[in-house]
Design a protein around this nucleic acid. Sequence first.
DNA 1: TATGGAAATGAAAATCATTTTCATTTCTGC
DNA 2: GCAGAAATGAAAATGATTTTCATTTCCATA
Lengths: 121, 121
Amino acid sequence: MSRSNPRVLNTLERAGGFASAQEVYHLMQRAGESIGLTTVYRSLQSLADDKIVDVLRRDDGESIYRLCGDAHHHHLVCKGCGDAIEIPGGAIEKWARTMAEEHGFRDVGHSAEIYGLCQKC
Amino acid sequence: MSRSNPRVLNTLERAGGFASAQEVYHLMQRAGESIGLTTVYRSLQSLADDKIVDVLRRDDGESIYRLCGDAHHHHLVCKGCGDAIEIPGGAIEKWARTMAEEHGFRDVGHSAEIYGLCQKC
DNA sequence: TATGGAAATGAAAATCATTTTCATTTCTGC
DNA sequence: GCAGAAATGAAAATGATTTTCATTTCCATA
């Protein structure tokens, strides 16, 4: 009994990586698709219930969604100009798994970000 | 220039573990202390800026605060109950430094968090 | 093909933590 | 004592999310 609108999932795919409900909504609007914000919220929630997407919280409290199992990467963000470079997770992946295991955590994901000043700034 | 009301820190200590701004506020009310919600928010924010307390997000989006040990650490957060365990950074520290160096970034910091379901959930 | 109920939809209102505004009070140094 | 700075808090604003509810779309079956 999927209550999820397929176009929402589609948009999330197109977005690549994380997107908030509001972002998905605006993406769809810009793409000329007619949909209500309520439906976007309901669909994302349903996708999360079905374990099709991961839910996280951004620092500002907004919920962000991502397709599960997506190859993920991390970001190197410049505090000056805001530029973000995608970088591989490397050692983090193992660290996360080890730490989680050590404390008996299941169904584990992680987020990591490096910030600093880039060469130009 | 501390903008933090000492009674707020005091209450957070008494609370033990995590407490949200609203919870701290109600605790103080119940204790007969006169304080405004605004001041509670400002004080907790200031304590967080000064790295005296840790800030996390509960699943419902509410921010929760806890006195933190001085060592640099990361968090293992349960998606179910919101419990957070402090864990050492380990490999991450080096990873962050390496990645930053590789791209010529200076003045580098990082954030990382692992989330999953704890044994109880 | 009609029909009746279930599910989906979305606009608008409600909720709720947090932030902002701004007038007032409390501190400080002189 | 006094001026200016900092702290305070009530009330309004903000913004994401949820709820309400009337309407529309589906779909199985008569």
